Simulated assay, not measured.
Amino acid sequence: MSLSAYDELDVIGGGAASVDRILLVDAPLGDSKGRVLLEQERYGGNVATAMVAAARGGATTAFVGHLPARDVEPGLWQCLRHNGVRLDLARTAPGQPGIRATILVDPDGRRFIAVDDDAPIGLPDDLDLELVRHAKVLLLDGYAVPAGVRAARAAREAGRGVVLDLEKVHHPETELLVDLSDHLVLPESFAVQWTGTNSPARAIAALWRADRCAVVITCGDRGAYFVSADDGTALGTGVLDRIQHQSVPPVQVKDTTGCGDVFHGAYAAALARGLPIAQCVAGATAAAAECATRVGGIPADS
């Protein structure tokens, strides 16, 4: 089934969607041994978690990337559908495997993620670009970079927003993907490494360009720093002076798994509603903080 006359969707994306085995342990991850306090199987992955967050934020969403076969991971399909993510545009094949992850979480909420991702991930190379041109926001991660570049270029040409989530460099064309994205929403660790800087502010200054709408650096419990076109920032003129900070509401942290993904999804949903960037960042920060109070990025009632 395809979109009827390419109905406009708020947010579309394709990237990691996984089945997560989450283990809460009683010792810091640097210790040699500890006890398992809680074990749960949950659903996650960068874009899958973000799409759920966008849908829970009121956006109409569609996952348009690769998914495991429905009979291989029926729970993942059920979870995404239950949360309002449209799946009839996803790409799959009989017997297609999915991503499996084992995640250790220590008492401070820090994580170690071991991933088995020998599976198709990201957008298909032949994605119908009319889907991209008729969606308000395209959400991408660092998988299937050439397909992401193709889709991002189509989105930008159509005047649509491209929100990019990167944690690592997976492909030589990643730099082109960064160039094509007008909403860079990046974790501090990646941003400072990518730019060769030593602070969120310096990373923002290095990443800002006149044709971007926003550069947002997320810093965990230190909140988010950002610059946006909303404030009239000009290329090379006072960028450091215009950087804004969004603090995190106080919460009891249980697990930081999926917090960054929830941030991206909530940001994309707010962007699709036409909210100013400052409001997009504030709402995304609050959603990410709430995520940290529970186990996994997608709520258990999903």
Results as ranks from 00 to 15, higher is better:
Val262Leu: 04
Pro107Leu: 05
Asp20Cys: 09
Cys291Ile: 09
Gly283Asp: 15
Gln78Met: 09
Glu157Arg: 12
Asp10Glu: 04
Asp230Arg: 12
Asn46Leu: 08
Gly223Gln: 05
Thr256Val: 11
Gly14Thr: 09
Arg294Ala: 12
Val149Met: 07
Ala286Tyr: 07
Met51Lys: 00
Leu37Ile: 13
Trp208Val: 03
Ala203Glu: 02
Asp221Met: 11
Arg150Trp: 06
Thr233His: 08
Thr293Ala: 03
Val227Cys: 03
Gly238Leu: 06
Pro146Arg: 03
Val132His: 04
Ala62Gln: 05
Val72Thr: 09
Ser181Thr: 15
Val115Ile: 12
Glu175Gln: 14
Trp194Cys: 08
Met1Gln: 01
Pro187His: 08
Asp71Trp: 00
Val281His: 13
Arg133Pro: 09
Ala55Leu: 09
Leu87Ile: 04
Asn46Trp: 00
Arg91Trp: 09
Pro28Leu: 01
Tyr43His: 01
Tyr43Phe: 10
Gly14Leu: 11
Ala119Trp: 08
Pro74Thr: 00
Gly30Met: 12
Asp71Pro: 01
Arg242Tyr: 02
Arg209Asp: 10
Ala272Ser: 14
Val132Ile: 05
Ala59Met: 05
Glu157Val: 01
Asp106Glu: 05
Ser247Gln: 00
Thr197Trp: 07
Arg156Asn: 09
Ser189Met: 08
Arg35Gly: 15
Asp165Ile: 11
Tyr6Asp: 07
Tyr43Ala: 04
Ser4Glu: 07
Ser32Leu: 15
Glu173Arg: 03
Ala272Val: 04
Ile12Gly: 06
Gly161Lys: 14
Asp7Val: 09
Ala282Arg: 13
Pro68Cys: 00
Ala210His: 03
Ala69Cys: 05
Glu41Asp: 10
Pro146Val: 08
Pro146Met: 05
Ala229Val: 10
Ala69Arg: 11
Ile243Trp: 00
Gly296Lys: 09
Thr233Lys: 07
Glu290Lys: 12
Gly65Phe: 07
His82Phe: 10
Val52Arg: 01
Ala53Trp: 02
Leu139Met: 15
Arg150Tyr: 09
Ser228Arg: 12
Gly236Asp: 08
Gly58Trp: 11
Leu177Trp: 14
Val36Ala: 12
Glu8Ser: 13
Arg242Ala: 13
Asp230Gln: 12
Gly95Leu: 13
Ala152Ile: 14
Pro187Glu: 04
Leu80Thr: 01
Asp165Glu: 14
Arg111Lys: 11
Ala229Lys: 00
Arg153Trp: 06
Leu184Cys: 07
Ser2Phe: 06
Gly65His: 03
Ala5Met: 01
